[in-house]
Structures are given as structure tokens and as C-alpha cells.
Design a protein around this nucleic acid. Structure first.
Lengths: 219, 219
DNA sequence: CTGTATTTTTGCAGTCTCTGCACTTTTGCG
DNA sequence: CGCAAAAGTGCAGAGACTGCAAAAATACAG
């Protein structure tokens, strides 16, 4: 099984003093991720072994697993952070179009995970080349799916108490599916134009518009 | 990596004479699947080992992997068969609503994979209990995503040559996302009411309708 | 600076999944 | 029956991953 157990990844309390410990952790993470990506890009994911990565980045395999949990961990990068409970509450009570609202909080959570831009670029390249990795990533997302579904459900309960259990359930699943499905498309466009956050919302609206046109039978 | 390599699974040429060989294969498959599911339901997927399954079903581990490719193979069941090239051609030139058409051929391919009803039931139960398996299943589907995207693309090229490369690409991704996303919802409803094929199309239309309403801002 | 407590890294041994290869058994068929 | 093809099996080995305890690094007084 082990869908991915990215390990603790302790986050510092606030921002105060990074401290040597923390700085080392970050440095090491970067080093390993970079090594892993370089190797994977050069030889292909299947050929690369954890031992190779460890030798290249000079950490023990045991430490590698402490950090990343799985062989692919260093390639996939940190899992998107869970939205804060305030953000969730805001979503639950927001009254905009539900898909749009959900998409927005997901996008925020997604781009909140900072990462070395160079590493980020390599990752993109690798993902394009190896669709299997994309799938793995989706799997990790799927784990969040339940959580996401839960907050959608909450919103529906609050705003549409008239729905039956089944209706609400179906609608929840559909909303989550649409959003998670459209997400890659939007993030692709976003990455093509390194615009600002406002631009992101425009993209989101445009995508939703496209979806509407797709599901609406031609006039 | 090995997202799933379900192994050959040679299909007989037609229907003529099953032959002892074929009959044995089927028998063994059933036996192993059943054993795997029983063990997984009783002890949990993570606890069960391939060796346990093999001992319970009296095949060598090597044979197990020849049949199922991965530990989870016997739990997941056969991968949905790829739609026939005639079906694909039909889809490419069909002029109905694209999501509906795609959904229909996917549904056909999906239900074409027959399986022992008892095994089927156990599988459903297990999937409910272990969401990680669902994710694995999604991963296998994601592998088909590329293939699916390709035929959607073909249809767009034929029916909407006016679209730019990028537009077509975006639209393709969105269509595939929507369909694959909505699929579980529909199959859930379908399984709840073991209706006939015609009923399936009704469900599909209803789901698409719901999607439209979801993405359409409230009046 | 020094000594101590705490956290992190590491080595090691072991389990489990999965693969290639060679060998045996089973099945198909003339 | 006898031979050829196909399928099942055993074995050895690589690679992913885990628990545990020793070792090293870091924090933190005094």
C-alpha cells in the first residue's frame, strides 16, 4: 500500500529563528531533491534507485526514507498543504459559484508550498516525460479528495439544506471531480504565464466557462 | 513505478471451444482472487502478503505474479478493457454531445469485463473499506487517460478543425477530466439499481445535467 | 566553553514485492 | 502414444521499505 507517507516534515513554530537544525534540514532536502530529479531526468525514473540518489546527494538511505517516505517522494515534492481552517470556513460560507470558490482555495493551498524554482522547473519537465509520476501525484491528491469532499459537503449542508442525502452526495462528488479534474489544466496555463494571483482567478473563471460550454449541448 | 502490469491475460480467439487450458486459467484466477479478497477483508490489505494469498489458493508466488503482476492485482480485478477500434471510430464521428458520447463508450468498455458476481461484491466491500485501493484503481485508470485523451483529440480534430492547438488541448483535458470524474458517480448509481443498459444512458444524461447546473451560476 | 539533554542521522538486519531464467509439468494434437 | 507448445514453478537476486539501537549533531544551560 503505502500511498505516500512523506514523513513528519516538522514545520517550525512560526518564523522567528530558523536555527541551524532547520537550515540543515532545508539544505539537505534541496540537495536530495535536486539529485533525485537530475538522476531521474537523465536515466529515467525506473532506472534510478534510492541508493543512487543517496550516493549522489550524500545522505544515508535510511535518512532518505525518513525525509521522503517513498522512492518517489523526492521526485514528487511536498504534498500540497491542507488549507487553513479559516480558509475552509470562509469557503463554507462564501456565496459565489461553488466550483469557482473551491478552485480558488485549492489554488491558494497549492501555491503556498514554496520550493526552489529550479527544482520546480525540473519537476515539471520530469512530469511531462513520465506520466506515471503524474498518476502517483493524482493518487496523493486522491487522498485529499476525502477531505475536500468533506468541506464541500459542509457547504452544501449549510447553503442547501433542502438536498437529500443522496443528492448532496452526488453533487459533492461531482463538484470535487470537476475541480480536481480542471485543476491541472488551469495550473498548466498558470505556469505558462507567470502572472499574478488576480490573473489566476481569471483563468479559473475561463476554465469554468469552457466546462459549461462543453457540457451544454450545442444550440 | 510499476503502476500495474496485469500480465498478458491472453484472451481466447473467439468463443468456440474454451479448452482445458482456458478453463484451468479461469478456475485458478477465481480461486486466487477469492482467496486474496477474503484475506484482505479479514486482515486488511497491508497485513496480507502475496505468500499468504498463494498458500491459501495453492499456487506458486511466481504464478501469482504471472497472473496479476502486482500484489494488488488480484484485489483490483481485471483492468477495464480498451474499447474496440470500431467503437472508437464510431465515437470519433458521432455527433452527439461529446461528454455523453465518451461516457457511453467508457461505460460499455467498463461493463464488458465480466467477473464472478460474488467476487464482484467482495471487491465493492473492500474498496469501501480501503480507500487506498480506490486510489490505486484510479491510477490504473489514469494510465488509460492518455489513450482516452487521444481519441477525444481525434474527434475534436475531425469535428472542430477551427480550434487552435492549445484550445483543443485544453478542451481535451477538460472533457476527459469531466468524464473520468463523473464516472465513479454514475457507476455508483448504476450499481445501486441493477438496471439495464438503457437505464445507464439515462443516468449519464442526468449526471451531465447536474454538472451543467453546478457550473452554471445561479440565476 | 563545557557538559548534558535532546533531536537527527545512520548502520544493520530483516521482510516483502517483483523479475529473469532455467526447469518441470500440463495440455494440445497428429 | 509421442512430440511440440504453453503454462506453472523454484531459485536466486535486486530493490523498496521498516524497526531498532548506536552514533553524531545540535541546543541549551551553567
Amino acid at each position: 500500500m503505502h500511498i505516500a507517507s512523506p514523513a513528519p516534515r516538522a514545520s517550525s513554530t512560526g518564523e522567528a529563528a530558523p536555527g541551524l537544525r532547520e537550515r540543515n534540514r532545508v539544505r539537505r532536502t534541496r540537495r536530495v531533491e535536486r539529485a533525485a530529479l537530475e538522476l531521474a531526468l537523465e536515466h529515467g525514473v525506473d532506472v534510478v534507485t534510492v541508493d543512487m540518489i543517496c550516493e549522489a546527494s550524500d545522505v544515508s538511505p535510511r535518512t532518505y526514507f525518513n525525509y521522503f517516505g517513498t522512492k518517489e517522494g523526492a521526485l514528487l515534492g511536498p504534498a500540497p498543504s491542507t488549507p487553513s481552517s479559516e480558509a475552509v470556513d470562509e469557503f463554507v460560507h462564501a456565496r459565489g459559484p461553488i466550483v469557482e470558490d473551491l478552485m480558488i482555495i485549492m489554488a491558494r493551498a497549492f501555491f503556498a508550498t514554496e520550493s526552489d524554482p529550479e527544482v520546480f522547473a525540473m519537476r515539471r519537465l520530469l512530469f511531462e516525460r513520465e506520466p506515471a509520476l503524474q498518476s502517483l501525484r493524482l493518487m496523493r491528491l486522491a487522498d485529499k479528495r476525502q477531505a475536500t469532499a468533506a468541506i464541500v459537503r459542509r457547504r452544501l449542508a449549510v447553503q442547501h439544506p433542502e438536498l437529500t442525502e443522496d443528492e448532496a452526495s452526488d453533487q459533492t462528488h461531482l463538484v470535487v471531480s470537476i475541480v480536481m479534474g480542471a485543476f491541472p489544466v488551469i495550473s498548466r496555463q498558470w505556469l505558462a504565464h507567470p502572472g499574478d494571483a488576480a490573473h489566476a482567478e481569471t483563468l479559473i473563471r475561463a476554465a469554468i466557462d469552457k466546462i459549461r460550454r462543453i457540457v451544454t449541448p450545442d444550440a
